[in-house]
Design a binder for these strands. Structure first.
Length: 377
RNA sequence: GGAGGGGUUCCCGAGUGGCCAAAGGGAGCAGACUGUAAAUCUGCCGUCGUAGACUUCGGAGGUUCGAAUCCUCCCCCCUCCA
């Protein structure tokens, strides 16, 4: 595929009259993304247990991959030699790469932050590596990402105001360096990431600094790091209205189905989360009536599909009893079927939200979402 | 017939006088998981229960303040020799 230059654009199509919910369309060099959208996570150039054609079948429009992991293995230069990430993994729709900023958070003792960047000790072999704003962008461009994320620090929670301020200021300086390092002539887009912890004024300052630099889209990072859901919603509500209406808004790492509905209500266009895929592998399935653990003994001879209201391949062909059996037996197909169902559920939830916003019925959609899962979860 | 080894809580398997309701696995049950160090991790796992009490280590006796552990007999399993 020959990328078109500078093709990135966001169209705001509808706005919900009763909330901040938005229906939009992102144009990328590899096609269109209808928003709000959930992006399945494919850290190591694969959405675990999903064939690319299965992803398309369930409606995936864009997936994630990770700079840190692919930089360590197999290496971005190798991926580039083999035609880039899209060819390498047989996925021709858009890919968004995370910058490694989340690993600054999650790798704990295995990393050290300096003004220059972050020194990581590889979780694979202990070897030492450095990612800087410049090298992160360079790796992401070598991979061929369509949406590139600024290199930031995902701040832990709780954190002192002093720490959050220092870290957020540094992430802003890094964002400036990312913008400078980004070669936009290949048609890739660059997103900035708002930090600021749980301090509204620092969120505001972060957002303003990023807007001053100017990005193709804006992410809100540092959420769902252990804080109460109410606090997370509050931070979304206070941060999102500050961002330009004509750019996509992406809340990183979120979340549960409820988080998605509440996020959309507050104006989020894009989400990603490992939850549907990881929980699938751990035996937890999402349904219209809440989540269920297919491991439970109560399903041992249950002939019903996971979700009677779901029309996915798994629900059309398999019983809860069979899925429980596969899980209990440690069979690979357990991960495959569970992941397929969960990703389908997440993407259908998004599709429904898009339709509802477009037809002005998002509040009904939200009410119905909660009504159906009453007493569960 | 002779010589030797062994029978432990659902399974495998440690434990050879008190710190043993008994290591460690597995199975089972329940839970967690939010920009993936995750097909991972945590808890429970004899009975009732807050402490605590009670019944367990092939069976029956015995020694001892005290036995899964020592002694006697019995039952069963495995290996080798006849």
């Amino acid at each position: 595929m020959q990328p078109t230059l500078n093709s990135f654009k966001f169209d705001l199509l509808h706005t919900d009259p009763h909330s901040q919910a938005r229906r939009g369309r992102i144009h990328t060099r590899r096609g269109v993304i209808e928003t709000p959208i959930f992006m399945p996570v494919g850290t190591q150039a694969t959405v675990k247990a999903m064939l690319p054609e299965n992803l398309k079948e369930v409606g995936a429009q864009i997936i994630l991959a990770n700079t840190y992991h692919l930089f360590l293995r197999p290496g971005h230069e190798l991926v580039k030699r083999l035609g880039g990430l899209h060819a390498f993994m047989n996925w021709d729709k858009p890919i968004l790469t995370d910058s490694g900023g989340f690993q600054v958070f999650s790798l704990g003792d295995l990393r050290k932050i300096t003004e220059e960047g972050v020194r990581f000790q590889s979780h694979l072999d202990g070897s030492s590596h450095v990612l800087t704003p410049e090298s992160s962008i360079s790796v992401q461009q070598a991979l061929g990402a369509d949406i590139i994320m600024a290199f930031d620090e995902c701040i832990p929670y709780p954190a002192t105001r002093e720490y959050v301020q220092d870290s957020t200021d540094r992430s802003s300086r890094w964002a400036q360096r990312c913008k400078k390092a980004h070669d936009c002539t290949d048609g890739s887009a660059l997103f900035g990431i708002v930090q600021g912890g749980m301090f509204p004024d620092l969120r505001k300052k972060s957002a303003e600094e990023l807007m001053h630099i100017g990005f193709d889209g804006y992410a809100v990072g540092g959420l769902s790091v252990g804080e109460e859901a109410a606090l997370m919603y509050d931070m979304m509500a206070q941060t999102l209205p500050l961002l330009p209406k004509d750019r996509p808004r992406y809340v990183m790492g979120v979340g549960t189905p409820e988080n998605l509905i509440e996020g959309i209500d507050r104006g989020v266009d894009m989400f990603d989360c490992v939850m549907p895929t990881r929980n699938a592998r751990n035996g937890v399935l999402f349904t219209s009536f809440g989540k269920i653990s297919i491991k439970q003994a109560r399903y041992v001879d249950d002939p019903a599909p996971v979700d009677p209201d779901c029309d996915c391949y798994v629900c059309r062909h398999y019983s809860r009893a069979y899925l429980r059996h596969l899980y209990q037996s440690g069979e690979i197909l357990s991960s495959v079927l569970n992941t397929y169902h969960n990703v389908h559920y997440y993407l259908k939830l998004m599709e429904g939200a898009r339709q509802a916003i477009a037809s002005g019925t998002f509040q009904d959609y939200k009410k119905d979402f909660y009504r159906r899962r009453q007493g569960n979860d």
